[in-house]
Nucleic acid binder design. Sequence first.
DNA 1: TAATAAATTTAGAATGATTCAAAAATAAAT
DNA 2: ATTTATTTTTGAATCATTCTAAATTTATTA
Lengths: 120, 120
Amino acid sequence: MTKQRAAIIKVMRENCGHFTAEEIFLLAKEEYPSIVRATIYNNLNGMVEEGSIRRICQSGHPDRFDRNPMPHEHIICTGCGKVEDLNIPGLTEAMEDATGCEIEDYELVIHCKCPECRVV
Amino acid sequence: MTKQRAAIIKVMRENCGHFTAEEIFLLAKEEYPSIVRATIYNNLNGMVEEGSIRRICQSGHPDRFDRNPMPHEHIICTGCGKVEDLNIPGLTEAMEDATGCEIEDYELVIHCKCPECRVV
DNA sequence: TAATAAATTTAGAATGATTCAAAAATAAAT
DNA sequence: ATTTATTTTTGAATCATTCTAAATTTATTA
């Protein structure tokens, strides 16, 4: 456990949501000003591999990192771009039925309007 | 309609599956040797925007392009890496129920073993 | 606690997919 | 056939991310 890693973990604990590496870098810099981007990537990649966080990828955007390590769904608002968590009950079973095998992992990103951006 | 665009469309019609821009580039080159990568990207981006193909993104890999323009699901095999289509009936309704709003689009990528890579 | 080994961080260059800007070529419209 | 609009080409640029090697820090062992 290094001071740099501690800073990254602190930043992710104290800020809610789905971070880009750059966002974490800027926040971690406030905790530990000499920290460098490669350290952010090293640690985030390690955490993803050990399964303590998740990676969310969206084409044309940098990857985001999600504090919630369990497979779950995401909404990306087509109005404001905000990323939110969602849980669809029974989804894993539906996937198992459709594939006929064990689901090792999955990513579901839904594009729709978040409550604040809804017109109707 | 240019000869380059025709070559790209021909390549996508005659080869099944989910192409990277680079794969399309190499195949299109056989049809039209002077074609250039930027033309591939121009055309693919245009087709995605007009909704005649879809983009699949996978972190750490180049984007893939899917001839099937309808929202549907994908399996990426954790054994061989192959990308296959899948359809999960009732998924859209489950998403509508969970979000309470109209689903404009979605991407679902499932990581599991394809039939050829299954051990059990 | 000192010495050694192992892991992590740093700096900065490198990579790779993709985009961009400007010029050249081609297609469409008059 | 001319003009206008669109597309392609070239090659440089961008951006997120990874890599390499050296320096530093942490953990382990004596």
